[in-house]
C-alpha cells in the first residue's frame, strides 16, 4: 500500500500529467491496450444446431429408468427380436415389506410411441406379463419437417487469433511511454507555506529571479526581524554577517585583511557597524520590544543598495564560508 501511495504521489508530480484537458500519453496507450485485449475476448459465434429443445421424457435412443412394483421375484425380460421397439433391462429387484417386489427397469426406446413396460417382461413359463400396466412415452428430438435426421455443427470455431504481434508492438510503445514518463524532468511543486528565509538559489539564479529580494534591505529584513524578536538562530546570524561582510568588504576595500581584522574594522566604522551594533543591542536587551519603525530605521541605509553583489561595479571579494567567518555575536 505504501508503494502504491508513493507511486501515486510520484505520478502526480509529473509535469505533463498535470496539464489540464490534454490526452495523457500513458493513459491513452493503456486505454488502447485494454480495448484491444477486451475486443479479443468478445465471445465468438456459437455453434449452430437447428434441433428443437430436448423434450422432458426420453427420446429415441436415449436411456431412461423407472421402478414398478410386481408380485413375484421371478419375472425376466422377454427375448429380443429385430423389430422390438423398446429395449428393457432389469437393473435390480428389491423386496418390499408388504410382499411385493420393486423392479428397477432401464429402457431405451427404438421407436416413437407409448409402450407398456410389462409387455416386455415374461413369467417363468415364458408368457408375457402384460399387467399391471406401466406405460412409458418415447418422444423424438428430430423436428417433423426436418430434411435430414442427422445434423452436424457448422465449423464451430470461427474465432480470431490473439493479435500477438500487435500486442507486442503496443506493449513496446507503452513501455517506451512509461520510460519517457520516468525520465521526464520533474519540477518540484512550490511549497504551500512560504519559506520564512528565502535563500537565493545560487545554482539556478533565473528560476527564482522574480521572487528574489531586489535590495539589500529586503534581503536583510527577515534576518533583522528575527533578531528583533530574539528568535534568530546561529546559522541565521552567520548568514547576516556574511551578507554584511560581503557588502562592506567591497565598500571599505578590506579584502586583503583577515576575518578578525575585517570584523574589527567593520564594527569600528560608523556606517558599516551600525546595523551589527544595533542588533547586538537588541539581543542583549531580552525584554525590549522592537517596533517596526526601529527595524526600518536600522535598514534605512541598505534600502537603496542592490541585493546581488554582481550588480555592483566593484569586484567582489571571495565569499567567506560558515566555518571561516567569525561570528560576532558569539565573540
Amino acid at each position: 500500500m505504501r508503494i502504491v501511495a508513493e507511486l501515486k504521489d510520484y505520478f502526480h508530480t509529473l509535469q505533463f500529467l498535470r496539464r489540464p484537458r490534454r490526452w495523457k500519453p500513458t493513459a491513452l496507450a493503456a486505454g488502447l491496450f485494454v480495448l484491444a485485449v477486451g475486443l479479443f475476448f468478445v465471445p465468438s459465434k456459437q455453434p449452430k444446431t437447428d434441433a428443437p429443445a430436448l423434450p422432458n421424457g426420453p427420446t429415441v435412443g436415449t436411456e431412461a429408468a423407472t421402478t414398478i412394483l410386481l408380485d413375484q421375484r421371478s419375472y425376466s425380460v422377454a427375448e429380443l427380436t429385430s423389430n422390438t421397439p423398446l429395449l428393457v433391462r432389469i437393473a435390480g429387484i428389491e423386496p418390499k415389506d408388504d410382499g411385493v417386489f420393486a423392479y428397477h427397469l432401464v429402457y431405451t426406446g427404438l421407436e416413437i410411441g407409448v409402450f407398456n413396460l410389462t409387455d416386455f417382461l415374461v413369467t417363468t413359463t415364458g408368457q408375457r406379463l402384460r399387467e399391471p400396466i406401466a406405460t412409458v412415452t418415447i418422444g423424438s428430438v428430430i423436428p417433423p419437417g426436418a430434411r435430414h435426421a442427422a445434423v452436424y455443427t457448422d465449423p464451430p470455431y470461427q474465432g480470431r487469433a490473439v493479435p500477438y504481434k500487435f500486442l507486442l508492438i503496443l506493449g513496446t510503445l507503452v513501455w517506451a511511454g512509461c520510460g519517457g514518463a520516468l525520465f521526464w524532468p520533474v519540477k518540484k511543486q512550490p511549497a504551500v507555506t512560504p519559506d520564512p528565509e528565502p535563500e537565493p538559489q545560487q545554482d539556478e539564479p533565473d528560476a527564482e529571479e522574480s521572487s528574489a529580494p531586489k535590495t539589500l534591505a529586503e534581503l536583510l529584513r527577515p534576518l533583522v526581524e528575527k533578531a528583533a524578536n530574539k528568535s534568530i538562530s546561529l546559522e541565521e546570524k552567520g548568514r547576516l554577517e556574511q551578507i554584511l561582510f560581503e557588502h562592506w568588504g567591497k565598500e571599505l576595500e578590506l579584502d586583503h585583511l583577515d576575518s578578525l581584522e575585517q570584523l574589527r574594522r567593520i564594527l569600528a566604522h560608523p556606517d558599516a557597524g551600525a546595523l551589527l551594533r544595533t542588533i547586538e543591542r537588541w539581543l542583549y536587551q531580552p525584554n525590549s520590544l522592537i517596533t517596526p519603525e526601529e527595524i526600518n530605521a536600522a535598514l534605512q541605509s541598505y534600502s537603496a543598495l542592490p541585493s546581488d553583489p554582481r550588480q555592483s561595479t566593484r569586484p567582489s571579494r571571495p565569499k567567506p564560508t560558515n566555518q571561516t567567518a567569525p561570528t560576532h555575536f558569539e565573540s
Binding site: 444446431t49 434441433a51 428443437p52 430436448l54 427420446t59 436415449t62 423424438s140 428430438v141 442427422a150 455443427t153
Partner: peptide, 8 residues
C-alpha cells in the same frame, strides 16, 4: 440436443 438428435 445435438447428440440426442444424432443418436436418434
Amino acid at each position: 440436443v445435438f447428440y440426442a438428435r444424432n443418436l436418434e
